[in-house]
Amino acid sequence: MQRVSIFTTDIGGARSEPFVHGDTTFVFGQLTCEGPVQLVEGSPRAFVDWLLDDCSGLELTRRLRADERMKHAHITIMLDSDDAEDRRRALAAGADDYAVGPLDRQAMLDRVLAQFGVDRDAAGERQLSLGDLTVNIGSEQARWNGERIVLRPNEFRVLRFLAENPNRIFSREELIAALGKAGDPEYLRTVDVWIKRLRAGLRDVGAHELLRTVHGKGYVLDTP
C-alpha cells in the first residue's frame, strides 16, 4: 500500500480523514508558510489559499518550488475570486492549477484523483544528502559514509523526517503528528522505542552523534 500526501493551508481540511483508492492511501496534512508539517509521501499535492496569516499564497508557492521535498508537487492555488490577473500571477509563481476556494475534502480528492498518475514527481528516486549521510526515499535505505544503516520501516521514516528538517528540535508529539500517527496515545510511548532503535542503527555505523536528545524538548538531527 503506497501513501500520497495531500497538503492544505486550511486547518480543517488538513484534519480530514485518509482516503483509500485501490492500493493507494491519500493522507491529508497541514501546510504552513514554513512548508509541510508532516512527512511528505508519494507524489505530493498542495492546495494553497490565496491569503494566509504569515505570507501570501504566491510567496508560499515560490517557497514550495524551492523546497526539495515539494518542488515537484502538484500545486493548486485557491483564489478568492475568478480574476484573470490573479490566475496569471498564480501560474507565474509556479502553481500548476487554480480554483476558486475554499475546497472541501471531497473537492480536493476529486481534483487529485482526476490527475492522479500524471505525475511530474520522481519521488521514488529522490535522495537526501547531509554530509556522509544519504537517505534514499524510494528504496527506504540510509547509509553513513557508504555503509548501510540497518533500520525498520518506522525508524527509517523518523530518520527521513529528521533529515528533511535538520538542526530542528521535535517533541514526541510533533514526531508522531509528522508521521501521521496523531490521535493515538500509544504512539507517544512507541516513539521512544523508535528513537532507541534509530540510535542503535546509527551507533553501529559510527554515526551516533547525529541524533541528539534535548532534555525536556525532544530530538534533533544535527547537520554532520
Rank of each mutant, 00 (worst) to 15 (best):
residue 9 T to C: 02
residue 11 I to P: 01
residue 12 G to F: 11
residue 15 R to V: 02
residue 15 R to I: 03
residue 15 R to Y: 14
residue 15 R to K: 15
residue 16 S to C: 04
residue 18 P to W: 09
residue 22 G to Y: 02
residue 23 D to F: 06
residue 26 F to T: 08
residue 32 T to G: 00
residue 33 C to W: 05
residue 34 E to R: 14
residue 37 V to E: 07
residue 38 Q to C: 15
residue 41 E to Y: 08
residue 42 G to A: 06
residue 43 S to A: 15
residue 43 S to T: 11
residue 44 P to L: 09
residue 44 P to Q: 04
residue 45 R to S: 03
residue 45 R to Q: 02
residue 46 A to R: 07
residue 49 D to P: 03
residue 50 W to F: 04
residue 52 L to H: 12
residue 54 D to G: 02
residue 55 C to D: 12
residue 58 L to E: 15
residue 58 L to W: 08
residue 60 L to Y: 01
residue 61 T to S: 10
residue 65 R to K: 15
residue 67 D to A: 07
residue 70 M to F: 00
residue 72 H to S: 13
residue 76 T to C: 13
residue 76 T to N: 11
residue 79 L to Q: 05
residue 82 D to C: 06
residue 85 E to I: 07
residue 89 R to W: 04
residue 89 R to N: 04
residue 91 L to R: 05
residue 93 A to W: 13
residue 94 G to D: 01
residue 94 G to L: 12
residue 94 G to E: 00
residue 94 G to Y: 13
residue 95 A to R: 01
residue 99 A to H: 09
residue 101 G to P: 10
residue 101 G to A: 04
residue 102 P to M: 00
residue 104 D to V: 10
residue 107 A to C: 12
residue 108 M to R: 03
residue 109 L to Q: 13
residue 109 L to H: 08
residue 110 D to I: 10
residue 113 L to V: 01
residue 114 A to L: 04
residue 117 G to Y: 07
residue 120 R to W: 14
residue 127 Q to W: 08
residue 128 L to T: 01
residue 129 S to D: 14
residue 130 L to E: 10
residue 130 L to M: 13
residue 130 L to H: 09
residue 130 L to P: 01
residue 131 G to M: 04
residue 134 T to Q: 10
residue 138 G to K: 11
residue 140 E to N: 04
residue 140 E to L: 12
residue 141 Q to W: 08
residue 142 A to D: 14
residue 143 R to Q: 15
